[in-house]
Design a protein around this nucleic acid. Sequence first.
DNA 1: AAGATTGTTGCTTA
DNA 2: TTAAGCAACAATCT
Length: 301
Amino acid sequence: MPELPEVETVKNDLLTRIKNKKILKISKDKSKLIKNSFAFFKKELEKASFLSVERIGKLLIFKFLNSSKKEKYLLVHLKMTGQLIYCDKNNFIAGGHINSRAEEKSIAKQEKNVFCKKGKYTHIIFEFEDGAKLFYNDLRQFGYLKIVDKKELVEVKSKFGIEPLQKNFTWENFQKIVKNKKTNIKAFLLNQKNIAGIGNIYADKILFKAGVFPKRNLQTLSREELKNIFLATKSIIAKAIKKRGTTFSDYRDARGKPGGFRACLMVYGREGKLCKKCKKGIIKKIKVAGRGTRYCPVCQK
DNA sequence: AAGATTGTTGCTTA
DNA sequence: TTAAGCAACAATCT
């Protein structure tokens, strides 16, 4: 599932490829993913160009000027299974050439649900002036696209907490957010109003690294445990971005490629297996904050 | 074939 | 008033 590192990777991939390119045409299969009317969506975006691509939490923000030269923003949330796949006019999925049916098939086999052409789960296609295309694919169709103005953007942005890789994510600020909260640590990490961008996979990974049991209440955590969680958050998010994100099932970057962080997962998806760290504990799966949660009973107290 | 999957919202309760 | 917790929702796979 795309969380901060995955969305950051998509953002960076797209930025270099679509910035300032004129959008000629937008077509759709299912418009329910678009939260504006499709007529409005087309009218605003066709003949415009994306001036920048930004990210806050797990949300992508594409800035553009509409035909009246008003600054507008396209918000894209990939939720669980959304993908933005960029493909140039020669059918290069950026980073790899698809030039034969056989090759395409073999790639589709290894990486199901990735398309250099319109596929079963392609819902929206952006066509650019140079013949390149951007595919929005979404198997479960939980994601959304929405055009907003500056006022609404500010409103949306204000709901996010601190970004783990920004300067203001300091030990002091972290302690401030924790203060007076009464929930368990996993729910705290998942809440986008506290820290922006952490999802289920990275929350489990952070708590494993910090050696903290996910159900622990914030107020019972020692200063040292909190500091370990703070440091683990920083280092894990940074490392995951370096590895271009985690692919568990559906996530792909804008080049259609899986992320490289999966091998680094210590608990997610490893229930019933021996803990890689202590080699004693068997990874357990429980429910915390309504989410499947994996932990090592030996390493996490 | 029911249950699991996760990110987010909105409702209820404390 | 605010936060915590929980159900609901989206569509598909096992």
